[in-house]
Each structure stands twice: as structure tokens, then as C-alpha cells.
Design a protein around this nucleic acid. Structure first.
Lengths: 149, 149
DNA sequence: CTGCCTGTGGAAACCGTTTTCACTTACCGC
DNA sequence: GCGGTAAGTGAAAACGGTTTCCACAGGCAG
């Protein structure tokens, strides 16, 4: 489950960031959305909550949240990147290419084994990794097969 | 091992693309480099080989090569993306964060197991995945520990 | 409540990428 | 080889997302 607005908010305060109205709006947008959103989309939705919100603030807030690990950057193949609410201790995500839904998951033992194997074979010391899975969520699988009829 | 210039060139021709001088220059740059390079870097190096090379052509050639799977897009955390020569049948890469060296590898059984596990648990149908590992290559580990002394 | 200092947002600058369009060149058939 | 043709090229301009600037606003501590 993705982090909620309150959790993200208190974490920001703990880290010494003020919890302002524009920031609350951005947090709410991310917490309420199961999808990954571009800065422009966050801005558009955030305006509905707090009309005076500026795009600049959206960028700055997203950067802070990404630094704190509260949201994840999702890199798309076309070069754009979007953001999705993160989850505690979970490091990866699975993106539905049809509806944009994002599910967080842990790499677990499978990934650890892979990293271990590579370390042994190549001598690389691996500090970080980043895995994205793309596919179709259960809901979109149904919709699609109906449409394709 | 990354693909060489000749292999990439003939593959382009097979696919119906002309093998022009500018394209040869781009191929050579990528084949000669073990690192991931930004379009601007490819352009700079390509100019040394073929001075009349244009940046536009670099972008277009990189796009063709990425479509054919001959080069891989490497996504960096700051949002920029760079390109590295690919290898046949290998789908992932490991990037040295110090020198930029790129090593290709196969996900193998570990990754398949992870995908299978997630498919069962979430109902997502996974079509594609994308894994990047970041770390330090053997050479840089040595250099670094010497420097840090 | 008051003040301070962080945070804000409009406008402009910035920069990587894409489009445009007249010119060039690889490749095919002869 | 040689010419025709369509794909390819590159300089400049357009474009769009992101960052910077700076005067103003608003959390939060006292």
C-alpha cells in the first residue's frame, strides 16, 4: 500500500520542512492517486485542491519527496519521468501500461540472488538497483479483452 | 560483450536503413566506448570522426538503434538519459557510477522467478521489464580505495 | 501576536530535443 | 561507372519541460 498524506506530511516536518498549503496539496494528489503522474498532472490536480498552487512548487516538492524516498520517480521509455507515492521499505514498482496504475513490491530473495551472482561473476560492487516492470493490471486485462471482442 | 560497429551496421541495412557516413560515425563512437554516453557526448565524439556530423542526425540514429535493440537507453536518476551499445539477447545493464562503464548481463532464472511470483500474487500480466544496477566496477574500487587511503 | 526565515509563484531564462526544409548521398538498375 | 530517386542530412528555428530569479506570503517559534 502506498503511503498516505499524513505519513508523508509528518515525515517532511521531521526532516525540517514546513508543511505548507501547496505542499499539502501535492501530497494529497499523490496519496489519492494510484497512478504515476507527471509534474504537469500533479500541478493540474493540485490546482483543484489549492488554486494558487504554482508549477515551480510542484517541482520543488516532488524533488524533496523523492529525496526523502516518499515518492518514486518512474522512468518512462520516451524519456519523460513521472512520480508515484512510495511505500515503506518497498523499492520497486510495476506499472500498468494501459491505465497507469502503480503497484509497489519488494525485490526479495530473487533479486538478492541475482545481485549476488553478478557480484561474484563481474567483481562489481552493487550499491543500488532499480527495477521497473511493465504490464497490464487485472482490471485492464478484462477491459481490453472485452473491447477486442 | 557489446556489439561491434560492423554487426550494428549490417543489422541496420537488413532493416532497410541506409548505412551513411554520419550513421557510421555514431556506430563507431558507441562501439568504441564501453560507457554510456549522452546524445551530446556522442555528437562531440562523432565530430572527431566525421566533422560535418549534425546533432539532429545523432538523435535520429540513436532512436533507430534503440528501436532495433542495438543500443540501450540508460536512465539516470537526474532525468537525463544516455545510450550504450547493447549485446545480443542481453537485456539489462550494470552501470559504474564512477567511470560510467556499462556491463550487459542476462536476468536469467532469478528474474524469471520474481516475475512469476509477482504475476501469481497480483494478477498483473507482465510484458516487459527493465532493470538497472548501479555500483562500482573493479577498476574504480581499486582507484577509490587508493585515493581514500 | 509578532518577526523571522523558509517557502511561494509569475515571468523569464535555460537547455535538451524535435521539426522544418532545402540540399546531399547511398543504393538500385542499367 | 552513371544517373535517378527516395532516404538521409544538418543549420536554424520552434518547442516544451525544467530551473532560476526575485519580490512577496505565510508557517512556526518565541
Amino acid at each position: 500500500m502506498a503511503l498516505d498524506q499524513v505519513t508523508m506530511g509528518s515525515r517532511m516536518q521531521t526532516e525540517g520542512y514546513k508543511l505548507t498549503r501547496p505542499r499539502r496539496a501535492v501530497l494529497q494528489v499523490l496519496a489519492d492517486s494510484g497512478e504515476h503522474l507527471s509534474p504537469a498532472e500533479v500541478y493540474a490536480r493540485g490546482k483543484a485542491i489549492y488554486p494558487r498552487l504554482g508549477l515551480v512548487t510542484v517541482y520543488r516538492t516532488l524533488e524533496i519527496l523523492a529525496d526523502l524516498g516518499l515518492v518514486k520517480r518512474v522512468h518512462l521509455d520516451d524519456g519523460c519521468h513521472t512520480y508515484a507515492a512510495s511505500a515503506v521499505g518497498h523499492n520497486h514498482h510495476m506499472v500498468c501500461t494501459l491505465c497507469g496504475a502503480v503497484v509497489n513490491f519488494e525485490g526479495g530473495e530473487d533479486l538478492s540472488a541475482l545481485v549476488r551472482r553478478l557480484t561474484e561473476h563481474t567483481g562489481y560492487r552493487i550499491n543500488d538497483h532499480w527495477l521497473e516492470l511493465f504490464g497490464t493490471c487485472p482490471a485492464c486485462q478484462t477491459t481490453r479483452s472485452e473491447r477486442q471482442g
